[in-house]
Amino acid sequence: AITFRFEGQEKAKKFYEKLMRQNLEATIHIHGDEVHVTVH
């Protein structure tokens, strides 16, 4: 698994949606202002 870190939720959401379109499995974790997107 690879984890990407984002400042702010907007960028993270766009990235997450892009992964979903590519049929990749990903989970999102929100830590205050920092958002972690883990790709499995």
Results as ranks from 00 to 15, higher is better:
His40Ser: 08
Asp33Met: 10
Ala26Phe: 15
Ala26Val: 14
Ile28Pro: 00
Lys14Tyr: 08
Leu19Val: 08
Thr38Val: 13
Ala12Ile: 02
Phe4Val: 06
Leu19Pro: 00
His29Leu: 09
Thr27Phe: 08
Val39Gly: 02
Phe6Glu: 01
Ala26Met: 07
Phe6Ile: 03
Glu17Ile: 07
His29Ser: 14
Val39Thr: 04
Lys11Ser: 14
Glu25Arg: 14
Ile30Ser: 06
Asn23Val: 04
Phe6Tyr: 02
Gly8Glu: 15
Ala26Ile: 11
Thr38Arg: 06
Glu34Thr: 10
Thr38Gly: 02
Arg5Phe: 13
His29Trp: 12
Gln9Gly: 08
Lys18Pro: 00
Ile28Asn: 00
Gln22His: 10
Lys18Asn: 11
Met20Phe: 04
Thr38Ala: 04
Glu7Ala: 12
Lys18Met: 15
Gln9Tyr: 15
His31Phe: 13
Ala12Arg: 00
Thr38Phe: 08
Ile30Leu: 11
Gly8Asn: 15
Val37Tyr: 01
Asp33Leu: 10
Ile28Tyr: 07
His29Pro: 00
Ile30Arg: 07
Lys14Ile: 12
Arg21Ile: 09
Gln22Met: 15
Asp33Phe: 11
Ala26Glu: 01
Ile28Ser: 01
Gln9Ser: 10
Glu10Arg: 05
Glu34Lys: 07
Leu24Ile: 15
His40Asn: 08
Ile28Trp: 08
Glu34Asn: 05
Ala12Pro: 00
Val39Leu: 13
Lys11Phe: 09
Glu10Gln: 07
Val39Ala: 04
Gly32Asn: 07
Glu10Pro: 04
His36Gln: 06
His31Ile: 13
Leu24Thr: 05
Lys11Arg: 10
Arg21Leu: 12
Lys13Cys: 12
Arg21Trp: 08
Phe4Gly: 02
Lys13Tyr: 14
Thr27Asn: 05
Asp33His: 11
Thr27Asp: 07
Leu19Cys: 12
Val37Leu: 03
Glu25Gln: 14
Tyr16Leu: 11
Val39Phe: 14
Thr3Tyr: 05
Ile2Val: 10
Asn23Gly: 15
Lys13Phe: 14
Glu34His: 11
Phe15Thr: 01
Phe4Asn: 02
Val35Met: 04
Arg21Pro: 02
Gln22Tyr: 13
Ile2His: 06
His29Asn: 07
His40Ile: 11
Phe15Cys: 06
Ala1Val: 13
Leu24Met: 10
Val35Asp: 00
Thr38Ile: 14
Asn23Leu: 06
Glu34Arg: 06
Thr38Lys: 07
Tyr16Trp: 10
Ile30Phe: 11
Ala1Tyr: 14
Val35Trp: 15
Arg5Asn: 04
Val37His: 00
Ile30Glu: 06
Lys11Tyr: 09
Ile2Cys: 13
His31Arg: 09
Leu24Ala: 05
Ala12Asn: 01
Asn23Trp: 07
Gly32Asp: 07
Ile28Thr: 01
His40Val: 10
Lys14Thr: 08
Leu19Gly: 00
Met20Arg: 10
His40Met: 12
Ala26Ser: 04
Val37Gly: 00
His36Lys: 05
Arg21Met: 13
Thr3Gln: 04
Glu34Phe: 12
Ile28Gln: 01
Leu19Gln: 02
Lys13Pro: 00
Lys13Asp: 07
Glu25Lys: 15
His40Thr: 09
Thr3Leu: 08
His36Phe: 15
Ile2Ala: 05
Ile30His: 07
Ala12Leu: 03
His40Asp: 04
Thr3Ile: 15
Arg21Tyr: 07
Tyr16Phe: 11
Phe4Tyr: 14
Thr27His: 08
His29Glu: 14
Gln9Arg: 09
Arg5Val: 15
Leu19His: 01
Lys13Gly: 05
Lys11His: 10
Tyr16Gly: 01
Ala26Pro: 04
His29Asp: 07
Asn23Tyr: 05
Ile2Glu: 04
Glu10Met: 06
His29Tyr: 12
Asp33Arg: 09
Lys14Phe: 08
Gln22Gly: 04
Lys13Met: 15
Glu25Thr: 14
Glu10Lys: 06
Glu7Thr: 13
Gly32Pro: 04
Lys13Ile: 14
Gly32Gln: 06
Gly8Tyr: 09
His31Glu: 12
Thr3Trp: 06
Thr27Pro: 01
Met20Cys: 06
Thr27Lys: 04
Gly32Val: 04
Phe6Leu: 02
Thr38Cys: 04
Ala1Thr: 14
Ala1Leu: 12
Leu19Tyr: 02
Lys13Arg: 13
Glu17Gly: 03
Leu19Asp: 00
Val37Met: 03
Ala26Thr: 04
Ala12Met: 03
Val35Arg: 00
Lys14Cys: 03
Lys14Gln: 13
Thr38Met: 10
Phe6Gly: 02
Thr27Leu: 06
Thr38Pro: 00
Lys14Glu: 14
His31Asn: 11
Phe4Met: 03
Thr27Tyr: 12
Ala12Phe: 04
His31Gln: 11
Lys18Arg: 10
Phe6Ala: 01
Ala26His: 04
Ala12Cys: 05
Glu25Pro: 13
Leu19Trp: 02
Glu34Ala: 07
Gly32His: 06
Glu17Phe: 05
Thr3Phe: 05
Phe4Asp: 02
His40Leu: 11
Glu17Val: 05
Phe15Asp: 00
Ala1Cys: 11
His29Cys: 10
Lys14His: 08
Ile28Ala: 02
Glu17Lys: 06
His31Gly: 03
Val37Pro: 00
Thr27Gln: 06
Gly8Leu: 11
Leu24His: 05
Lys14Asn: 09
Leu19Thr: 02
Ala12Thr: 01
Asp33Ala: 11
Ile2Gln: 06
Val35Ser: 03
Glu10Ala: 08
Ile2Arg: 06
His40Trp: 14
Glu34Tyr: 13
Arg5Asp: 03
Lys11Ala: 15
Glu7Arg: 13
Glu7Tyr: 13
Phe15Pro: 00
His29Arg: 09
Lys18Gly: 08
Gln22Asn: 09
His40Tyr: 14
Ile28His: 01
Phe6Ser: 01
Lys14Val: 11
Val35Leu: 03
Glu17Pro: 00
Ala1Trp: 15
Thr38His: 13
Glu10Leu: 07
Val39Gln: 03
Ala26Cys: 04
Gly8Trp: 05
Met20Ser: 05
Ile30Ala: 07
Thr27Val: 08
Ile2Met: 09
Ala12Glu: 01
Glu25Gly: 09
Glu25His: 15
His36Trp: 15
Ala26Gln: 01
Ala1Gly: 11
Lys11Cys: 14
Tyr16Ala: 06
Glu25Ser: 14
Met20Thr: 07
Arg5Ser: 07
Glu25Met: 14
Arg21Cys: 06
Met20Trp: 05
Met20His: 05
Phe6Val: 02
Glu34Gly: 06
Tyr16Lys: 03
Gln22Thr: 05
Met20Pro: 01
His29Thr: 15
Ile2Trp: 10
Gln9Asp: 08
Gly8Gln: 13
Arg5Leu: 08
His31Thr: 08
His36Arg: 08
Thr27Ile: 07
Met20Leu: 14
His31Pro: 00
Ala12Tyr: 03
Gln9Lys: 10
Lys18His: 13
Thr27Arg: 05
Gln22Ile: 08
Ile30Val: 10
Phe6Met: 02
Gly8Phe: 10
Glu25Asp: 13
Thr3Glu: 04
Phe4Trp: 09
Leu19Ala: 04
Thr3Asn: 03
Met20Asn: 04
Ile30Pro: 04
Ala12Val: 02
Lys18Tyr: 15
Lys11Ile: 11
Met20Gly: 03
Met20Tyr: 04
Phe15Ser: 00
Gln22Leu: 15
Val37Ile: 10
Phe4Ser: 02
His31Val: 15
Asp33Asn: 14
Leu24Asn: 03
Gly32Trp: 05
Asn23Ile: 03
Thr3Ser: 05
Tyr16Ser: 02
Ile28Arg: 00
His31Met: 12
Val37Glu: 00
Arg21Thr: 09
Glu25Phe: 15
Asn23Phe: 07
Arg5His: 10
Asn23Met: 07
Glu7Asp: 14
Val35Phe: 12
Lys18Trp: 15
Ile28Gly: 00
Arg21Gln: 13
Ile28Lys: 00
Phe15Glu: 01
Arg5Gln: 07
Thr27Ala: 05
Glu34Gln: 09
Leu24Phe: 12
Lys11Leu: 14
His40Gln: 09
Thr3Asp: 03
Ala1Glu: 11
His40Arg: 10
Met20Ala: 05
Lys11Trp: 08
Arg5Gly: 04
Phe15Ile: 02
Gln9Phe: 15
Ala1Phe: 13
Val39Arg: 03
Leu24Val: 13
Leu24Lys: 07
Gln9His: 14
His36Tyr: 15
Gln22Asp: 07
Glu10Tyr: 07
Glu17Arg: 05
Ile28Leu: 10
His40Pro: 06
Phe6Pro: 01
Asp33Ser: 12
Leu19Glu: 01
Val35Ala: 04
Glu7Pro: 09
